[in-house]
Design a binder for these strands. Sequence first.
DNA 1: AACACGTGGTGAAGCGCTTAAGTTTGCCAT
DNA 2: ATGGCAAACTTAAGCGCTTCACCACGTGTT
Lengths: 396, 396
Amino acid sequence: MPFLRERLRCHLRGTRYPCRYPALGRGSRTVWFEGKHVVTAQYSEEAVSRRPRAPRRPTIADIAERAGVSAGAVSYALNGRPGVSEETRARVIEVARQVGWTPNNAARALTGVGVATVGMVVTRAASVLGVEPFFMSFIAGIEEVLAEKDFALLLQVAPFADKELDTYQRWWSGRRVDGVFVVDLRVNDPRVARLTELGLPAVVVGDPKYAGSLPSVWSDDASAVWEAARHLAALGHRRIAHVSGPEHLVHTGVRSAAFRDSGRELGIEVVQLYTDYSLEAGTAAAATLLADPAAPTALVFDNDLMAVAAVHVAREMGLRVPEDVSILAWDDSPLCRLTSPPLSAMSRDVAAYGASAARLLLAAIAGERAGSMRSSVPHLIDRGSLAPANPGAPLT
Amino acid sequence: MPFLRERLRCHLRGTRYPCRYPALGRGSRTVWFEGKHVVTAQYSEEAVSRRPRAPRRPTIADIAERAGVSAGAVSYALNGRPGVSEETRARVIEVARQVGWTPNNAARALTGVGVATVGMVVTRAASVLGVEPFFMSFIAGIEEVLAEKDFALLLQVAPFADKELDTYQRWWSGRRVDGVFVVDLRVNDPRVARLTELGLPAVVVGDPKYAGSLPSVWSDDASAVWEAARHLAALGHRRIAHVSGPEHLVHTGVRSAAFRDSGRELGIEVVQLYTDYSLEAGTAAAATLLADPAAPTALVFDNDLMAVAAVHVAREMGLRVPEDVSILAWDDSPLCRLTSPPLSAMSRDVAAYGASAARLLLAAIAGERAGSMRSSVPHLIDRGSLAPANPGAPLT
DNA sequence: AACACGTGGTGAAGCGCTTAAGTTTGCCAT
DNA sequence: ATGGCAAACTTAAGCGCTTCACCACGTGTT
């Protein structure tokens, strides 16, 4: 009740700040009031400039009044809780619809019921992110599930991993999210420990072995690697290259290990290269590998972008795909159909992968003890970039 | 003070729900309490299962206590407002740091000061989004600016536009965002009207002519089209095709109109095709155009994805690029360097575009009357997919 | 008639923060 | 010594919602 302001507006006089009261500047000011002086303090410009916005949002109090019940009853009614009759519930819901009420998330969050928001931090350089199809498809899959439940996705894209932990912490302590995704899982990932410690519901996208006690979704890369290796072995390849992502990522390790194991088993020599997934890295890797007189007869790339680059490099070097060198991509996207020949790829449904992750996270938020969940195993789609080994071909 | 619960735990007896009190099911229950009966109501399972999480977040009350001042003073101190001495301010800030305090956004939002979050709704099919480099680069640019100010980005990806308005409305009434981006601006876009009406700060990404009174960032597509047209005219092209995006998008209209105008001026016949930006559409468009005996001698695509597809189609049809047909992409991404020949493109710095949008939105949220802001004009980067017209070439 | 018990409510506290309003103290000029 | 004035606080209300605690009343049972 700003009674002082009202009375001042009428009776303000004899002051150095006549009639300017509501627009006082920063700092404290002295004002006379009906003859004697009063002192008022701290009217910052911001406080004054912030005016109520045009249409006032309806609150449950408005609904309560119009429906002739208490605010508590409205809350019970709208949240589908017991405590009101079905008749009252229907009336309340109808009134809410009429006045166009939507819940004020901030207020709900304050009472501790959750903010209907989940978070995800993506750490990749902008140049890679823009081109790599994985994340956008993954996010699209996530949204599909979230939208149903009216959850929102808070996204942070950053070029470096240094602030990641910070971000999670801030989101948690600011109650901005109910749960988070952990993508690009690393070995001994500090995020796993921190999130567990914070008690913030989280879903790890990656191998459960490295997810600690957090629930996880994963795709069985090892099996897929074996499938690829067997296929290549059957085609007579005895020397292949595996151009993978950054070494510190768990799935890089899993795939590399599986390649080593399957190679040993199947009599294939595997050359291992680590990259940052970028187009440039793919180009460089392919160029280096193919320039070698003892070049591998097949190249397997850990994303499709690099594989596409490799097709390009091979052609530049006068090599035919697949006659001279076989190329296999990981993660199928429309890009793979754009090369000639189209790229064979280890394909998986990335959107479905994202959807699974989202479902698991929602379950974790709801308090269910969710375990790990295997998404479909990537399977080989052969489009013609694989052929029998031709060891003599390159650069002879 | 849940005294009842405490005493019940000790004295509960003679009830049908002995010792199960904290785990009562839904609905109301009757319970005896110290001999006489009492009635309790509405203990839902959810309410009971939600237990306080492990580490309690420190609040300003904690800081106030440790710093020996009131909570109000702490608020003034932490927000850099007048009302506390510099000495006290420093002490408070130090204590806050020590206890690891971070603001509770929900609480701040409730008082009306803003939630440090902006929103963006992206309406594209998952299949397109995954591959199209524009959005991820744009978002990366946005984040760069937001991160500095500790703002977060709320993202919604949906395949259809039908719920877009709804989403903005919900975000607004739930106080989930301080402002929003409007991308994929359409002619007579209902979002512009609605956002203006709501008074929700917004930045339109698109031509200011269609942005109403909202601030906007735009790239001068018309000028860029003229540049492209002049270049093609100089190469002797007299019949070109413009394969654009969906007809209802403003920038599609702008580019089409500019192509018509420049074509008339420069003596070029322009064939106009509308697509959904997808790879498939690009393939179909290229195939249709090139199969025509009177095919255009140059194809201009409104994104790079379709242009890449076109190079592929041309090769399949036995046409050489650029000798038989010139191809020009819009929005340069690494994809353009993956074809052979590499694609010439109308290039612009998409990340910088996003960053501008973010800066403008932050200004609008801060209450500054922001106008429109032109981002850099796309400019032609010639990589060799353009050559003098060869009208006789196709399918002769 | 007396009690047991369920239904369908109401009232109010409290989540963490901001800020209008008020108070205390001390300095300085008259 | 007193009034004017400013600095540096404190107090308390209130943002919108959820939920605990409590209760009146009606019905069924003994």
